[in-house]
Every structure is written in C-alpha cells, then in structure tokens.
C-alpha cells in the first residue's frame, strides 16, 4: 500500500512499530510516536488520534510489466543481491495465516485467498483476485455505485467509478480483509 505521510502540514517518518493489530502491520511515526493502522491509515493511539493517513493508489505487478508501462521509472536501489522473497514458504502454505484469530474472522473463503478489496464508508466488497487474472473487467456494486475493476497494461489492478474517477483498491489475503471488514460483500 501507499500512504501520504503528511498530516496537518507535518511530514512524518513512518517506522515499523513491532505491533500487530487484526493480524496486520501497525506503523509508528518517529515525530509523535502515534500508532497507525496499515490497512485503514487511521491513527489508533497517540497525539494524532482523530486523523488518518490518506491512501495513495499504488499497484502490485512484476518488474517487467511495470517497466514496460513506466519506461522512465526509478527503482529503489538494493544494497545487496536479493534473489527471492524471504517468505516463499509463508506465501505457499495455505495453513499459515495470521498469528491471532480476529474476533470476527469470516470463513466464507479459505484464509489465503487473494482478494481485491474496495471500501466506501461502512460498505466494502472483496473481489477474488483470480477473476481478474485473465484481464477481464469485473463490475461490482459499492455503496450504490457501480465500480469496474480491471488489470492494466502494467499488470496492476485498478478500479474506477462510472465517471472514470479512481477508487482505491487493496490487494490482500482474505484473512486480513475479513478481520477488518467482517460484513464485506464477496464476489467470487
């Protein structure tokens, strides 16, 4: 995910707090010590409670696809050679999900199912990622609006309203999405 790290005119440096909430990352800013939820961007504890980090659209794709779509891109420099994820086994093992069972974990899908999540106020919908893998467009209803999701030329999935305006999409495992949005609709 990508968050704006400016709140009330102050630029924050976000660190890994070492805390987990609803099986997901909690960030802590160096300037005020406020704890922030990764999934919602909301301040949970500290001076900046009542504020929220704005979510900026970012996409997950492969290096080849991203470069083809963004030839002028810059790339974070590696300080050493890294040839694989440290967590291959974690991703490949359907039994390993979060550490802690959330209060409202939903069993409607296997925990490791990848979904694209959309939210609007109290409304949320999860679209099973496999539906979009072939490049097909999928339309869903969210808070009374029709939203279209589709994988773009750079490999990233985006979502937009009928008027073309972008809607934030979160790609996430079902166990994490359902911990945050227990009443979510599901498109599978």
């Amino acid at each position: 995910m990508v968050h704006a790290r400016e709140v009330d005119g102050k630029t924050l440096t976000l660190l890994v707090s070492g805390k987990l909430w609803r099986n997901s990352l909690v960030m802590q800013d160096e300037e005020t010590g406020t704890l922030w939820s990764h999934i919602t961007g909301e301040a949970l504890e500290g001076e900046l409670v009542g504020t929220q980090l704005e979510i900026v659209p970012g996409v997950h794709t492969t290096w080849a696809e991203w470069k083809a779509g963004h030839p002028g891109t810059l790339v974070l420099k590696k300080s050493e050679e890294i040839k694989a994820s440290r967590y291959e086994r974690y991703f490949d093992d359907p039994e390993r999900t979060g550490l802690f069972r959330a209060n409202w974990l939903q069993d409607r899908l296997p925990g490791k199912t990848l979904v694209y999540g959309l939210r609007s106020g109290p409304h949320s919908v999860a679209v099973v990622a496999e539906l979009l893998a072939g490049g097909d467009a999928v339309e869903v209803e969210l808070a009374g609006e029709t939203i279209t999701l589709q994988q773009g030329d750079d490999g990233g999935v985006r979502a937009w309203r009928a008027d073309g305006s972008a809607v934030d999409v979160l790609d996430v495992f079902w166990f994490a999405w359902s911990s945050f949005y227990p009443n979510t609709a599901v498109v599978d």
């Binding site: 987990l20 999934i39 997950h60 967590y87 390993r96 979060g98 990622a129 495992f173 994490a176």
Partner: peptide, 19 residues
C-alpha cells in the same frame, strides 16, 4: 487454487510482519 506465479505476484502486505 490459483497458480503460483500469480499468487506470489500479488501476495499481500499485511502478512509479512506476521511471518
């Protein structure tokens, strides 16, 4: 189940600290 390359490609964020 989803084929593996796709799984890795879009695999998620929040799980990592957990791992």
């Amino acid at each position: 189940m989803m084929p593996n390359p796709f799984n890795r490609r879009v695999a998620l964020a929040t799980a990592l600290l957990v791992a």
